[in-house]
Design a protein around this nucleic acid. Structure first.
Lengths: 343, 343
DNA sequence: TATTCAATTTCAATCGGTTGCGCTAATTTT
DNA sequence: AAAATTAGCGCAACCGATTGAAATTGAATA
């Protein structure tokens, strides 16, 4: 155990006063004489006194810490969200505690409990892909912890949510491919238990319908893991099965890149033989050859919005005001690049 | 303020016993009768009792939280380090609190103080590029907080450090270019106040020397920011100044990518006109055209090593054992790809 | 019956800071 | 000169859990 942290009691002893006087002096309480204040401030500075936030948190039942649970961190989107959250938190005097669930529900449960035990003032979460179990989240909400879900949300929970306009984004992506003259558009879809996956698929379907293109269920291929390898192997399969296609709209950029690489290896030219568009706009997607078209979702904006929403709720509840959870939609944008633009 | 968290006192009241009995019952202390234990455990489970770690931390002067301060988070290397740290921390029952200094010394100072106020049990840090000021770190070390620096370290501080073998990595990169037949190798160097930048430059110089290539100071061009734009504009400058060169070894991958893009735009072919190699191996560097050669530094390994080192020190000090800080070097590897291999 | 002993349980201090209230002494008012 | 006011400070409880020591209980022993 670390010993001898310098406390208010130490200051009090050295100056021959009580620790309550020290406490008040440090906060410039009007009851305290200027002389005492000066002496306390001087000594505190000299000894580099730093208050113990644990004691404060315990006393006030308030930690000034926001928790955030993300499935991954080596991921541009989530990293951006975190930096957005941090920015807001910093400005408002909050710290951020991060847990990474590694796409494991089990880990997510452990993390949620740890966050509660640390008495975070609020929790932000983007769920794992696999999970449908909500009991740990319901539990923490019941205990009165403000919760905001972002990106991967669950409809069943009556909490604030921040999402991208997945439907609209997918619609724009598909429409863009259609306008480029593509007729047989494959969709590499995301996991069906997450709303984002379903919404993107629905956006794709809606665009096809609006442009009178018949839907072929065989053209919708699930890529639930959404990693590079899955994108690759799926594309190999598609080519081997001689499915006729001239475009790919992938549920995310990594899958799109995997598919693009596989197609290139198989001798297909992009975008002439196959147009490709992803979703999520990775920072490096624009550096690929050809640069990958994508739907941009601003992780930073989502993080900022979610953190603000969470703080709003925290403050409302501190003042015993009512707060009705709401869902905010962050716009997505079509980024046209070489992988989908026919020359 | 959030009210009514369920505490040991509540359990005690409901069962008509004292809270110390509850405390002991929950930890299966032998003094407590089985009946009491059963009753306590049952009620605790029923009410979903979660201990308040703040109270524990305050009591034991131990928070089971490790702090980590990184300059950036939207960055494959740091994200990997964090996930390595998390992995170790989880297994050992620690949580991780993350701060992002955004390459600002001022923010780094604020973060360091916040970490101390939260009474983290130990701190991991990779410094901002700009800063030479070490007083805040010295201060936290003096207060007895175990500190481990990684990647961007300072020699002046007598703490444990985890670094990549930058010299060796740079040597390998340069040697590789030489063996590909390159004679005029430009080095886009990092900031001079960081050891990693100096070591990489020295590795470059050593390789040139060993292969009897004369050093031309004009071929060493500082890119202290190390971002995409800097890589690009620097390369434009080089080409405009008609400096003769056939290879580029960049201090990091982003700079290398910037340089590569600029060279391509100016009509130079890679690797035939110019061979390029970076440092750090971004996840997507292999997806570029041509795929970028690089020196791989495993962020995860660095994170794991740093966290283990930190925990070792924390434990030693808890047992009042001596601990001598040490520096661990994580190997780097040459990854040869299309950007530097002459056909 | 008095004493010892073990099994359980409670008491109270502790961690560091906050805060309502009370106390003292000096100053002002009547 | 007595009473009221006020500036300045200390006391002690509190937040939630832990823990050494003391207390209670009942049973066993002398």
């Amino acid at each position: 155990m670390r010993k001898g942290q310098y406390t208010m009691q130490d200051i009090a002893n050295e100056l021959g006063i009580s620790k309550s006087t020290v406490s008040r002096a440090l906060k410039n309480h009007p009851d305290i004489s200027q002389d005492t204040k000066d002496a306390v401030h001087k000594l505190a500075k000299e000894k580099d006194y730093q208050p113990n936030s644990l004691a404060l948190s315990l006393r006030h039942n308030k930690s000034f810490v926001l928790g955030i649970i993300v499935p991954e961190i080596v991921h541009d989107f989530f990293a951006n969200v975190i930096s957005g959250v941090q920015k807001v938190a910093y400005n408002e005097g909050y710290n951020v505690m991060i847990c990474i669930s590694n796409e494991s529900t089990e880990q997510e449960i452990v993390d949620t409990k740890a966050m509660f035990s640390s008495r975070v003032d609020g929790l932000l979460i983007s769920r794992t892909k696999e999970s449908n179990d909500l009991s740990h989240l319901k539990s923490i909400v019941n205990k009165g912890v403000p919760l905001v879900m972002f990106d991967r949300v669950s409809e069943e929970l009556n909490v604030s949510k921040v999402i991208t306009d997945d439907f609209q984004g997918a619609y724009m992506a598909t429409e863009h491919l259609i306008k480029q003259g593509c007729k047989n558009i494959i969709h590499l879809s995301g996991p069906d238990n997450l709303a984002i996956g379903r919404n993107r698929k629905n956006g794709y379907l809606a665009a096809l319908k609006d442009y009178n293109i018949e839907v072929d269920e065989n053209m919708i291929i699930p890529c639930p893991k959404g990693d590079l390898d899955e994108g690759k192997t799926t594309m190999y399969d598609i080519i081997d099965q001689k499915i006729e296609f001239d475009a790919v709209f992938a549920n995310n950029d990594v899958t799109a890149i995997g598919a693009m690489n596989a197609a290139k290896e198989k001798g297909l030219s992009i975008p002439n033989d196959v147009s490709v568009i992803g979703f999520g706009d990775w920072r490096l997607s624009q550096l690929l050859d050809p640069p990958l078209s994508s739907i941009e979702q601003s992780g930073v904006d989502i993080g900022v919005t979610a953190a603000k929403l969470l703080l709003e709720q925290i403050r409302a509840e501190e003042k015993d005001e009512d707060f009705t959870p709401r869902t905010e939609v962050v716009e997505s944008h079509l980024i046209k690049r070489g992988s989908s633009i026919h020359s």
